[in-house]
Design a protein around this nucleic acid. Sequence first.
DNA 1: GAACGGGTACTCGGATAACTATTGTCCGAGTGACTGTGG
DNA 2: CCACAGTCACTCGGACAATAGTTATCCGAGTACCCGTTC
Lengths: 167, 167
Amino acid sequence: MRNVQDMKLREGVEWAVHCCINLSWLAPDRAVPAARLAEFHNLPAAYLNKQLHALGRAGVVSARSGPRGGFRLGREPEKITLMDVAVAIDGSAQAFLCTGIRHQGPAGGIAGPAGRRTPCTVAQAFSHAELAWRHQLASRTIADLADAVRQANPAAPDHVRSWFDRT
Amino acid sequence: MRNVQDMKLREGVEWAVHCCINLSWLAPDRAVPAARLAEFHNLPAAYLNKQLHALGRAGVVSARSGPRGGFRLGREPEKITLMDVAVAIDGSAQAFLCTGIRHQGPAGGIAGPAGRRTPCTVAQAFSHAELAWRHQLASRTIADLADAVRQANPAAPDHVRSWFDRT
DNA sequence: GAACGGGTACTCGGATAACTATTGTCCGAGTGACTGTGG
DNA sequence: CCACAGTCACTCGGACAATAGTTATCCGAGTACCCGTTC
């Protein structure tokens, strides 16, 4: 039971975003195994595999089994937002879900049945805040971040490509 | 060790906000025991006590022991933001703390020492989103919410007062 | 009648356990490539 | 030389533990009130 959905950003979100950026610099048809992506950042391979699998379910990446298989971006980097990644990994859609405590106990008798129809003010306030957060994440794409990284370090894409091409 | 600070809104935050609103309607010198506040919303008394204690450390409420003791607001409701409450309960200041994985493993060698000085693009993006969230929460005060509730149900303050005055 | 001292009940405060969720690991199913063989 | 079938190694995918964080609980320290006693 999940009464209160959480807004926690699991560590895997950070990993996933970095992986997506790296993948965006590789040839579109080039698939990279999870183990190799993990090695690049010193991450636990098996666990990263699990996260990438979650991204696969969301369509952010596409997976292929067998030799020369692995993961590659499921669509153009311009079409992948940070929100997509966060939702894929974290799963939760809403961070603050009103428990409805204002209707429990003696407090419930005060507002009466009419109060049960009006929205919970507290929940509304938190929802607005969360909406702002989500809006920000939805406005940034993997392509955006990749460009920013390239601007700070123009050689990065080539270096990443060459490292992943090493056998 | 807390590598990744979390943004999770613990259930206690919701409780605390509701309690603060209720307290804002009582006489300023009126102290309410945690047990009574808990009874009002059917919450576990001992645990709510703990959360209120956290609010006390942050100055949001002030506590008094002994008979006729309990909790009351530590300052005017206009001076208490939702952010204050969330931070007091949740404690964490930053939700997304960059783990620095881009410097671990082979990836670190690519950017080089220079890359270590440039800020992590991924972390920046998430920080902006979190800032928007925090800004929203900081812009809403307990007084705001109390007014909104009163607008939806004008009789609420009196009812709350009278219930808490019952022996 | 008023002041004082002791007792008592009540409250917070922090230390302690139970539980849930996240992190991490492992092995099996599936798939594509490679090799050797036959035409 | 080309096509084909069998085998193999490689990869994902989901099921299975370990760990950390949150929820919940309990009991002790402190405090203000109340009552009985004394001046």
